[in-house]
Computed example of a mutant assay.
Amino acid sequence: MASNADLPETRVRKGEAKAQAGSQTLLRGLDVIEAVVDGPIGLAELAARLDLTRSTTHRLATALVERRYLSFVPRLGYQFGPKLLELGFQAQQQTDIVQVARPHLEALAASTEDTVHLGMLDRDRALYLDKIPGRRRVEINSRVGDRHPLTATGLGKALLLDASEGEWERLFQLDRASGAPPADYGVWLKRMHGYVDAGRTFDLEENEDLIRCVAAPIRGAGGAIVGAMSVSSAAQYMADARMTALTAEVLETARAISSDMGWSPENTGRAAPRGRGRR
Rank of each mutant, 00 (worst) to 15 (best):
F202N: 09
P181M: 05
R212V: 02
S233T: 11
Y237G: 13
W188Q: 06
G186Y: 07
R242T: 12
Y185V: 04
L174I: 01
S178C: 12
G179E: 03
V226Q: 04
G199S: 05
G179I: 01
R191S: 09
L174K: 09
C213P: 01
D209R: 13
A224N: 15
R212G: 03
G223F: 07
R200P: 10
P182V: 00
R191W: 03
L204P: 00
P181R: 09
E206A: 08
H193M: 11
R242V: 14
R176H: 01
M238P: 00
A198E: 12
R191F: 01
D240N: 14
P182H: 05
I225Y: 07
R212Q: 09
G220F: 01
A221Y: 07
A235Y: 08
A241Y: 14
A234T: 12
A228I: 02
H193G: 13
I211L: 04
D175P: 08
A221T: 13
V196M: 06
E206R: 09
D184K: 05
L210E: 15
C213D: 10
A234N: 14
A241E: 15
D184F: 00
L204V: 03
G227M: 08
A224G: 15
A215S: 14
A221F: 07
R242A: 12
A180T: 00
D209H: 13
F202M: 10
K190W: 02
V196P: 06
R242E: 14
R212W: 03
A216P: 11
G222K: 10
D240H: 12
A177D: 14
Q236M: 15
K190S: 12
M192S: 13
S230M: 09
C213K: 01
G227L: 08
S232M: 07
A239W: 14
G179Q: 04
S232C: 08
I225H: 11
E206Y: 04
T201V: 07
Y237M: 15
I225S: 14
A235W: 08
A183Y: 01
R176M: 05
K190D: 12
R200Q: 12
K190I: 02
R200D: 08
V187Q: 11
G199N: 03
D175K: 10
R176P: 00
T201S: 15
P182C: 02
G199Q: 02
G186V: 09
K190G: 11
R212T: 04
N207G: 10
P217H: 00
L210Y: 14
W188K: 07
A216N: 09
G220L: 00
S232R: 01
Y195Q: 10
D175H: 08
G227P: 11
A180G: 02
A215L: 06
R219W: 02
T201C: 13
L189S: 14
D240L: 12
A235K: 08
L174A: 09
M243S: 10
A177Q: 14
C213N: 05
Y195W: 08
A235H: 09
H193N: 14
Y185S: 05
A180I: 04
G199I: 00
G222C: 06
P217G: 02
